[in-house]
């Protein structure tokens, strides 16, 4: 009885985050139902109820609680929810850290033009950082970066609109049990989430450089 909620993958017989809250595998969810389910299940797993139980049962309830929290946090955030659903659907998002990956799995997932832009912007960021470190500012370069910042923010906004449309399309395909439409949306959403993570990373870098006050600004994730 302990094994049925342990893993978040979609393999047979395992309960998904959606199952935990008795929610359909859709991307527009009933957030009130999610909240209610979360509080109800949290109460059922409350440590006080397990105070006099065996160590094994206590450990189990603890594991269930942390799983419940993960599930709740994931489903609450629409982007995390989307990434999770795509993973359930076998799209293996954010999971390239495996030795036996399929080398073709990721090919062309990110459009070449975006990569070019990302690369160019990184070149400018590097130059700007070098300037700043010397205590200099380059107004022309700063202007370029500010324009890029505006442009990337706009891209992010319109991407999020596309994403919202894709959620609706996915849900409709679910209702209609239309596998072809589902697959189409899956591929589209994988590409969108990849794009989104580039844009977000880039914006973080640009924001960092433009608000640089000294000492920070160097990319830290060596």
């Amino acid at each position: 009885m302990q094994s049925h909620v342990q893993n978040s993958t979609a393999s047979d017989g395992e309960q998904t985050y959606f199952d935990m809250f008795s929610l359909p595998r859709k991307l527009t969810i009933d957030t009130a139902a999610l909240e209610r389910g979360f509080y109800k299940l949290s109460r059922q797993l409350h440590p006080d109820l397990y105070a006099r139980k065996s160590a094994a049962e206590q450990a189990w309830s603890l594991r269930q609680s942390s799983l419940l929290n993960d599930a709740y946090r994931t489903l609450k955030d629409p982007v995390a929810r989307t990434a999770y659903l795509l993973k359930l659907e076998g799209m293996r998002m954010e999971d390239e850290n495996t030795e036996n990956r399929d080398p073709r799995a990721k090919q062309n997932r990110v459009p070449a033009d975006l990569l070019e832009e990302v690369f160019e912007l990184n070149m400018q960021l590097e130059e700007m950082r070098a300037n700043l470190k010397m205590g200099e500012d380059d107004p022309a370069l700063r202007g370029d970066l500010e324009r890029a910042q505006v442009q990337f923010k706009a891209m992010l906004t319109s991407l999020d609109e596309d994403l919202r449309r894709a959620w609706a399309a996915w849900d409709a395909a679910m209702d209609a049990s239309d596998d072809a439409a589902k697959n189409e949306q899956k591929d589209a959403m994988v590409a969108m989430l990849d794009r989104r993570s580039y844009l977000r990373n880039l914006l973080r870098e640009v924001d960092g450089v433009l608000t640089w006050q000294g000492a920070v600004g160097e990319k830290a994730n060596i």
């Binding site: 390239e96 690369f119 993570s197 990373n201 880039l202």
Partner: peptide, 13 residues
């Protein structure tokens, strides 16, 4: 070859 890792947004040429 210009490639990127969406996981972290890093790019490599």
């Amino acid at each position: 070859g210009l490639v990127g890792a969406p996981e972290c947004g890093d790019v490599m040429r």
